[in-house]
Amino acid sequence: SVIISHVAEEIKIKIEEISRSEVNLGAAEDAFSSLINKSIRALIRGIESKMEPCFSEMLKINWGQVSSVEDQPPYVTSICQIMSEKICAINAFLNTSYVRLLCNKFVVYFMRKFLQQFYKCKRISEQGCQQLLLDLQHLRRSLQGLPNEGNPERFSSASLASYEKLLVKETKKAENVLQILMSPPGDKNLITNYVDLVQHPSIPDFIKLMDLKGMKKAEIGPLVDQLGLNKKVSKTEYVDMEEDLDLQPQEMGTGSVFAGWKRTFGDSIKMGSGKDLALGLGKELLSRT
């Protein structure tokens, strides 16, 4: 969109004064932004599809019966390997501005995907929570290196400060849920901690977390009544996995990434609708990894 804005300004300079006010490339900017969004989504979904078997392995673990903590379970090793290989291959074809953008969006999507897996478990013991915290640290270190995959000098540490901040923020959401699950029986601050630590506190979410802790319905009921009095708590639960994946205007880069893609892939990328081009780019990139 920044490129199109510059084009619009150049056109205004070159045409007659009477026609300048009629130059408006807003529709082109919107189309360009939409195309980038669809391309990013296609790439992220492609990587996610490669990791699905790993998440399936994660859910096969009986987290309620974990009695000891191991350094790095196989599912974590596989996820880290897939992230590294796929992002490295994609980074090689992207303008630097879009490498950062892809990694930002991938962190948000991946951490929400990982957090979702907690809610699919039947029960998570205290040792299970400890294991998940350790797994989370391994995954965080892997995510930390994604922007420089394939080129260790692509970004300096200083230029990745905002990425690091985002990574800490998204990781903290999962850590907070695990902290609630590890709270001791009879914790008087359970309700307060839940409301303060969980991003979207709701009654259905609270009931599920207490169920994961192994609490009985008779124990959960009074807590739910107490929780329902808090105005910050919603009575419904909805977490949009794609929330925050749309790009904001300030996130748009200035490099002509699509021209670079066209030079790289040639006629394998056909112009068409934004959706078709986005899916084509995603499939082409993933097929080369």
Score class of each variant (00 low, 15 high):
82 I>H: 04
28 A>Y: 03
37 N>C: 07
51 M>Y: 00
38 K>A: 08
53 P>E: 05
64 G>D: 09
77 T>C: 11
39 S>C: 12
102 L>P: 02
37 N>W: 02
30 D>N: 09
31 A>D: 10
72 Q>I: 13
49 S>F: 00
81 Q>W: 06
37 N>P: 05
49 S>V: 02
104 N>T: 03
79 I>N: 04
96 T>Q: 12
48 E>A: 10
34 S>F: 00
108 V>Y: 01
82 I>D: 00
57 E>H: 11
78 S>D: 10
61 I>G: 00
87 I>C: 09
77 T>L: 15
75 Y>T: 00
41 R>S: 05
69 V>C: 10
59 L>V: 05
97 S>Y: 07
35 L>W: 02
107 V>D: 07
28 A>N: 09
95 N>S: 13
63 W>S: 07
31 A>L: 05
28 A>G: 00
58 M>C: 09
109 Y>S: 08
52 E>K: 12
41 R>E: 08
36 I>C: 07
76 V>I: 14
102 L>W: 02
97 S>F: 04
32 F>W: 14
99 V>R: 09
110 F>G: 04
87 I>A: 03
91 N>T: 01
69 V>T: 02
106 F>H: 12
33 S>Q: 13
65 Q>M: 12
27 A>S: 12
33 S>L: 09
64 G>E: 07
49 S>E: 13
38 K>R: 12
33 S>I: 08
66 V>L: 11
26 G>Y: 02
63 W>Y: 05
68 S>L: 14
96 T>E: 11
50 K>N: 02
56 S>A: 13
68 S>V: 07
42 A>Q: 07
82 I>G: 01
77 T>H: 12
46 G>L: 06
60 K>T: 03
84 S>H: 13
30 D>T: 08
36 I>T: 03
75 Y>N: 14
79 I>W: 05
56 S>W: 00
45 R>T: 05
33 S>N: 10
90 I>F: 04
78 S>N: 14
28 A>C: 10
85 E>V: 06
97 S>W: 01
55 F>H: 02
81 Q>D: 11
49 S>K: 14
66 V>H: 05
98 Y>K: 04
29 E>W: 01
67 S>A: 15
28 A>K: 04
87 I>T: 09
101 L>D: 02
110 F>C: 07
57 E>P: 00
65 Q>K: 15
110 F>L: 09
106 F>Y: 15
91 N>W: 03
59 L>K: 09
44 I>T: 04
69 V>R: 12
47 I>V: 10
65 Q>E: 14
33 S>E: 06
81 Q>A: 13
101 L>F: 05
97 S>K: 07
40 I>V: 10
64 G>W: 01
98 Y>Q: 03
48 E>Y: 11
60 K>N: 10
104 N>Y: 12
70 E>F: 09
51 M>I: 07
76 V>N: 02
84 S>M: 14
52 E>C: 01
